[in-house]
C-alpha cells in the first residue's frame, strides 16, 4: 500500500510541476512576445500579448476571489463552483447512461458476431458527427417527448449528449477486454459445461477489468466534454458551459474572468477521471502488479 501512496504522491507532484511549467511558459511569452503580435506578410503568426489577449496567470486566479459582478456578494469562485457542481451531476448522469449503453453493446457484440459486424462500423461513424450539430437536434427531439405526465427536461438532452461521447470508448474498450480471455481459460469453462452467461461473469468480465478501466476513464472525461459543449450550444443555464459563454462575452472588459470558468471545466474533467482511477485502485488491489494494456 505504501508504494501505491508513494506513486500517487509522485504523480501529483509531476502534475503540479507540469502545470507550473505551463504557467511559466505563458508568462515568459507574455513578457518577451510583441504586444500587438508578430506579423509576417500581413498574417499574424504570433499571438498578441496585451492584457486583453493574455491576462497574467495571477490575475486569472485572483479573479476567483473577487465578486462575479460589481457590487455582488457572490464571488466568481462561488459561481464557478456552483456551475461545476451542476455540470458534474449532468456529466455523471451522462457517464452512467453511456456506460450502460457501452457495456450493453459490448456484451451483445461479444456474444453475436453478426451484431459486431453490423454495429461496430456505425459506432465509429457516430463519433464523426459534430456534437455542435447534434445538440440542437437532440434538444428539439427531447422537447417533443411527452410520456404521460413526464416532460423531457432540457438538462436530460445535455446528459444524453454526454452519454453520446462517453459510450464509444467504453463500448470499444469493454469489447476488447471481453475478447481478451485466454483460449485455455475459455476451454476450461467449456470443460465445466458453463453457459455463456456464467462464462461472461466468472471469466470474461474479470479479464476485461484492466481494459475497461482506461476505457471508463476516457468515457468519464468524454462525458464532461459532451456536457460542457452541449451546454454551450443549447445555452442551458446553470452549468459551467453557460458560464464560459457568459464570461467570454465580458472578455473585452474583464479578460481574466473567462479563464476561471475554463479552469472549472478542466477541474471537473479531472475529478471525473480521478473518481474512475480511485475505483481502479480498489478493484485491482489484488491483481498482479504489471501493466496489462
Amino acid at each position: 500500500m505504501t508504494s501505491v501512496v508513494r506513486r500517487a504522491v509522485q504523480r501529483s507532484a509531476m502534475f503540479v510541476a507540469a502545470l507550473a511549467l505551463v504557467a511559466v511558459i505563458w508568462e515568459t511569452y507574455k513578457a518577451l512576445g510583441p504586444e500587438e503580435g508578430g506579423q509576417l506578410l500581413g498574417i499574424r503568426i504570433l499571438p498578441r500579448t496585451s492584457e486583453y489577449a493574455m491576462p497574467h496567470v495571477w490575475d486569472m486566479f485572483s479573479r476567483f476571489g473577487r465578486p462575479e459582478v460589481r457590487g455582488s456578494a457572490r464571488t466568481v469562485f462561488d459561481a464557478v463552483l456552483a456551475g461545476a457542481w451542476y455540470s458534474f451531476r449532468l456529466s455523471v448522469a451522462g457517464f452512467v447512461f453511456g456506460a450502460v449503453i457501452g457495456v450493453g453493446l459490448a456484451v451483445l457484440m461479444a456474444r453475436f458476431k453478426w451484431v459486431q459486424r453490423g454495429v461496430l462500423p456505425y459506432l465509429v461513424v457516430s463519433q464523426t458527427v459534430p456534437l455542435i450539430a447534434l445538440a440542437p437536434l437532440i434538444v428539439s427531439w427531447g422537447g417533443k417527448l411527452e410520456i404521460g405526465a413526464f416532460v423531457w427536461p432540457r438538462w436530460m438532452s445535455v446528459s444524453v449528449l454526454g452519454a453520446f461521447l462517453a459510450f464509444f470508448p467504453i463500448a470499444v474498450g469493454t469489447l476488447r477486454g471481453l475478447a481478451a480471455a485466454p483460449a485455455a481459460s475459455v476451454e476450461l469453462m467449456q470443460s465445466y459445461a458453463a453457459s455463456w452467461t456464467k462464462t461472461l461473469f466468472k471469466l470474461r468480465f474479470p479479464t476485461a477489468v484492466p481494459y475497461m478501466v482506461p476505457a471508463f476513464r476516457l468515457g468519464a472525461s468524454a462525458s464532461v466534454i459532451g456536457v460542457v459543449v452541449a451546454e454551450i450550444s443549447t445555452g442551458l443555464r446553470g452549468g459551467i458551459g453557460r458560464l464560459i459563454i457568459e464570461y467570454a462575452r465580458e472578455a473585452t472588459g474583464d479578460p481574466a474572468k473567462v479563464y476561471t470558468a475554463i479552469f472549472g471545466a478542466a477541474a471537473l474533467g479531472l475529478v471525473m477521471a480521478g473518481a474512475v482511477v480511485a475505483v481502479d485502485v480498489v478493484v485491482m488491489r489484488n491483481r498482479p502488479k504489471e501493466a496489462v494494456v
Binding site: 485466454p182 485455455a184 481459460s185 476450461l188 466468472k202 471469466l203 474479470p206 489484488n286 491483481r287
Partner: peptide, 9 residues
C-alpha cells in the same frame, strides 16, 4: 493445461 490458467482475481 500447460499453463496453470488460474484466475488472477
Amino acid at each position: 493445461f500447460q499453463q496453470a490458467g488460474l484466475f488472477d482475481w
